[in-house]
Design a protein around this nucleic acid. Structure first.
Length: 322
DNA sequence: AAGCGATGCAACCGCAAGACG
DNA sequence: CCGTCTTGCGGTTGCATCGCT
């Protein structure tokens, strides 16, 4: 495959765009649209390569772009989605209205990454750094981390519970294709034990970090969740046992894989044919493992991604399922 | 005021995938 | 099916600005 010559090779301008160039590009796109970036520069009277023009338009001149400081909410969303998706900036950008992938990527690299490092969290794996476990503060972080694991399992269990409720009440269930019927979850599990306070790693991010850890130890005396990951056939199973201090309620929260089923390597909701991403928490190790359950999201385009209004979950709608 | 390193943002580069003939 | 072209993505670099000495 032949590569198009770069700007330098054909003597085109590089570097920062001037206001005049911006105006030219903006005027041209507004009048003619942007069908062919290769031919656009010449037609617009720009001494730039098409790639540069496309980039400038997509990241700075497009009218639906918000510039400026990221809000705390946006930061949290970035962290959550990064834990799930890794460096899939374009996908992450679809969850941040009016933000571009490039801007998010830059913000991650220059701000969030550094702050996570300072907090003793590996920004790549979202796991605690081992060497950080020696300090008191890091013990607290470890507790948060542990709690967050529990929270993850709880969310998945809730998802299963909601789904099962739908099966009971929703007549649509009978129309679920056979493939999906084969993966219908087992009967309802016993009710969940009382929840520990909702904690996740993002609380560290949002300032809970500074609070004393004494309450954490109390909580951990009451709940001690353990996560286990295994792979069975095409399903990956997430299971946990939760023990409560009064030892009256030891219950398994099992087989998230029974709720979700895999199609083409993606975790699917058998009812809605949607790919679900837990959006309320992303715990380092759990999410790494959870992400591992999503071995191939590559076929999901930006257009496939939408917000699930009012839900704790964000779902990717209509990813290619060929 | 000058020098210099740190920081953050804008933009480039190379690769891969999709479109198309 | 194959080759070429175009587009999109993520990693990386370049450079302007800031802050400290």
């Amino acid at each position: 495959m032949g590569r198009s010559p770069c700007c330098e090779k054909v003597g085109l301008k590089k570097g920062t765009w001037t206001a005049e160039e911006d105006q030219k590009l903006l005027a041209y796109v507004e009048e003619h649209g942007y069908g062919n970036w290769k031919t656009l520069p010449a037609q617009a009277g720009l001494q730039r390569c098409g790639k540069s023009c496309r980039f400038r338009w997509a990241n700075y001149l497009r009218p639906d772009i918000k510039r400026g400081k990221f809000s705390l909410q946006e930061e949290q969303t970035i962290i959550q989605l990064h834990a799930l998706l890794g460096n899939r900036w374009s996908v992450i950008a679809t969850h941040l209205p009016k933000r571009t992938d490039n801007e998010i990527k830059n913000y991650w690299n220059t701000h969030i990454k550094k702050r996570l490092n300072k907090m003793g969290i590996d920004p790549v794996t979202h796991k605690l750094k081992i060497h950080a476990l020696s300090t008191n503060q890091s013990k607290y972080t470890a507790n948060l981390y542990h709690m967050a694991q529990w929270e993850s399992v709880r969310l998945e269990a809730e998802a299963r519970f909601i789904h099962q409720s739908k099966l009971v009440s929703n007549p649509y269930h009978s129309q679920v294709p056979l493939l999906h019927k084969a993966t219908v979850p087992p009967p309802l599990a016993p009710p969940l034990p009382p929840r520990p306070p909702c904690l996740d790693i993002l609380k560290v991010w949002t300032g809970e970090w500074a609070k004393p850890a004494k309450d954490m130890s109390t909580i951990f005396n009451e709940f001690s969740p353990t996560l286990n990951f295994s792979s069975k056939n095409k399903f990956s199973t997430i299971s946990t046992t939760v023990g409560h201090s009064d030892s009256s309620s030891i219950m398994p929260i099992s087989d998230v894989g029974n709720y979700f089923h895999m199609i083409n390597g993606r975790i699917m909701d058998p009812i809605n044919d949607s790919i679900y991403i837990t959006n309320s928490l992303n715990v380092p190790s759990f999410m790494k493992s959870f992400t591992d359950l999503l071995p191939n999201m590559d076929g999901v385009t930006d257009n496939d991604v939408g917000s699930y209004d009012g839900s704790k979950r964000t779902r990717i709608i209509g990813g290619t399922m060929n």
